[in-house]
Nucleic acid binder design. Structure first.
Length: 241
DNA sequence: CCCGGAAGAC
DNA sequence: GTCTTCCGGG
């Protein structure tokens, strides 16, 4: 069943036990997911976004954080700190354009990622721990006070994301042919056939697909949570030739 | 505009 | 640890 999901940082809840404040990338995802129009929007590339109104975005961010003097200069400094953390890249040459680092995909199954030693255990489809809801349901997506994050039904052992926060690209399987070193699960012999439903949860354009849709090099090293392989460092349009 | 060091808040 | 603030430099 091979499920391809998102990088480790993307699974950190907006309100992790350690940090009681919203994180900037969550905030950005929230705005992008809401398609709130104006301040920020998805760009052409997978994960790329463009800040259309920098000062307005800064004002919104400042309001969220209780920092009335926030501006784009300071916000962009925070974005720059994401470079080293490998959460963001700058799309060079394009003004106000950054890109989320979705190049490192994480292979996990929802009720908890599986450590490399025991990953053959729960290799079956796992439903999301929260009820689906359309983006129009009024509740804020991607966390925030009073959002789904707070009213999650069960204690969640693992961080999670909400649908609608991420771009919906990949109309075709050619994403893998690009510069993205996507990672997928190798075929596990122990699994047998466990494919209850491949529909997954595309209800919101959630890019949750079986990697069988894409032909993947099996020898790509797949790093799980905590793994820090840096073989990707994805490029834009210019690849080495 | 964009970059990152430095210091400090929390 | 995650920004916020300030800033010299390109």
């Amino acid at each position: 069943m091979k499920t391809v999901l998102f990088p480790d940082w993307a699974y950190k809840p907006a309100w992790s036990p350690g940090s009681r404040q919203v994180q900037l990338w969550h905030f950005l995802l929230e705005l992008l997911g809401r398609n709130e129009g104006g301040a920020i929007g998805w760009g052409g590339e997978w994960g790329e976004f463009i800040i259309r109104d920098p000062e307005r975005l800064a004002r919104l961010w400042g309001e969220r954080k209780g920092k009335p003097h926030m501006n784009y200069d300071k916000l962009s400094r925070a974005l720059r700190y994401y470079y080293n953390k490998r959460i963001l890249h700058k799309t060079k040459g394009k003004r106000f354009t950054y890109k989320f680092n979705f190049s490192k995909l994480i292979l996990v199954n929802y009720p908890g990622y599986l450590p490399p030693s025991s990953h053959q255990q729960l290799v079956h489809r796992a439903p999301l721990p929260f009820p689906f809801l359309p983006a129009e349901s009024g509740l804020p997506l991607c966390g925030g006070v009073g959002s789904l994050m707070d009213r999650a039904v069960q204690p969640l052992p693992h961080p999670f994301l909400l649908p609608g926060c991420l771009p919906k690209p990949l109309p075709v399987p050619q994403a893998l042919h690009g510069p993205f070193p996507f990672i997928s699960a190798p075929a596990h012999p122990a699994v047998g056939k466990t494919e209850p439903r491949e529909s997954g949860l595309n209800v919101n354009g959630w890019p949750h697909r079986s990697s069988a849709d894409w032909d993947v090099n099996p020898h790509i090293s797949w790093n799980l949570l905590g793994g820090e392989k840096r073989e990707d460092e994805d490029r834009e349009g210019k690849d080495a030739d």
